[in-house]
Structure formats: C-alpha cells, structure tokens
C-alpha cells in the first residue's frame, strides 16, 4: 500500500492525487520521524524533566507543518488526525524493517541492534505489528472505533478533541475505547 493510499480516507478528495499534497505528506513523515526519534531518545535518557508526550509531539509537528501550502487541512484537529496516522505508519514500518532484518531480510547488513540482549519480545515489534493488523481488522468492522484508537494512542488526542473530530459524545468515546482496547489487547496477547 502506498503512503497516499493509507491516507485516502483522511484527505479531501481534491488532494488525493495532488503532487503538492503528496510532498506535504512526505514531509509530514520526515518531521514526524524526527519527532519520534526525539521522543524515543527522551525515553532512553529517562529524562525526568522531559515533557514529551504524543500530544506535545503532534503539536510540534503541527507547528512545523502548519504553513505548508500542500496541506489543506480543515483544522488543527484534522491535522492531528492525519499526524496520528503518520505516527502509526512510521512505527509499523520501522517494526516491519526490524522484523525483516532479524529474519535475515534485506536490511541485515546495515541494521542490527546495538544491544544484543534485546530480543524480539523486549523490543516488541511483534506486538506492534499485531496491534496494527488487529486495528485494521477493527477498522473494517467499526471504522469509528479504530479511528478513536488511532487518534488516542498514536496521536495523543484528548477525548474532548476526538469528540469534536468525530462528532460523538465523550461518554461514547470512553465506552468505545474501553472495549476496543480490551479486544485489541487480547489480540496482541494471542499473537505474542
């Protein structure tokens, strides 16, 4: 699936094949990636003063991309929704690559883990891939719920924001989140 395809449901129709929009999306990936590295590095350093969170991260990406002429986003919230998708795509792609390299895939020559003690369970790319596929399944059955999970987990959107974005009550979101999380958690556990 191409990058654009994975955003098909989030972009305005006019933008789906727009070259500028594609570049903007591309740029979003690049920026998001750098933000993710920062987030990851903060975890690594165990920096207690670090205020980094998915929310801060997406806000930052928004600030950096807001003037991009390529994005015709309806609102900052809509952007956050797109950024959440970008986060997901990036993490999944990273996990896939790591997975492939462990199994002797193409990347092996270059990418190996620094810390050899990190096994697959600890690095959790299996979990991430399982989550992704479960989320895709959920999305086929109940797109709204999948959107809630994607926004909340990958984008750090608040319940209030998701409520605005999807036009459903906060109570419904909490309820949906609870069941989805339980179901997804179970799927990930089964896969692992």
């Amino acid at each position: 699936m191409s990058v654009e395809d994975s955003f098909r449901d989030l972009l305005p129709a006019a933008q789906r094949d727009d070259r500028v929009a594609r570049q903007a999306l591309d740029q979003l990936f690049s920026v998001t990636y750098e933000e993710l590295r920062r987030l990851a590095a903060a975890v690594k350093c165990q920096d207690p003063s670090s205020t980094l969170s998915p929310t801060a991260l997406v806000n930052e990406a928004w600030l950096r991309l807001v003037k991009s002429p390529g994005f015709v986003v309806e609102s900052p919230l809509h952007f956050k929704r797109i950024a959440a998708r970008a986060m997901r795509q990036l993490l999944i792609e990273a996990a896939r690559r790591r997975n492939a390299s462990k199994r002797g895939g193409a990347g092996e020559a270059i990418f190996v883990t620094f810390d050899e003690s990190l096994d697959s369970a600890a690095t959790g790319e299996g979990d991430l891939l399982a989550l992704d596929s479960a989320l895709s399944e959920l999305s086929r059955v109940e797109p709204r719920q999948a959107a809630i999970v994607e926004s909340r987990f990958f984008g750090g959107l608040e319940i209030r924001e998701i409520s605005c974005l999807l036009g459903i009550s906060e109570a419904t979101i909490l309820r949906d989140w609870r069941s989805a999380k339980a179901w997804l958690g179970n799927r990930v556990r089964q896969a692992g």
Partner: peptide
C-alpha cells in the same frame, strides 16, 4: 513503543 521500535535501530 517509539523507543522500542526506533531508537534501538
């Protein structure tokens, strides 16, 4: 998750 998926690569 980000830490695990990205930084150790």
């Amino acid at each position: 998750v980000a830490h695990k998926a990205i930084s150790s690569t």
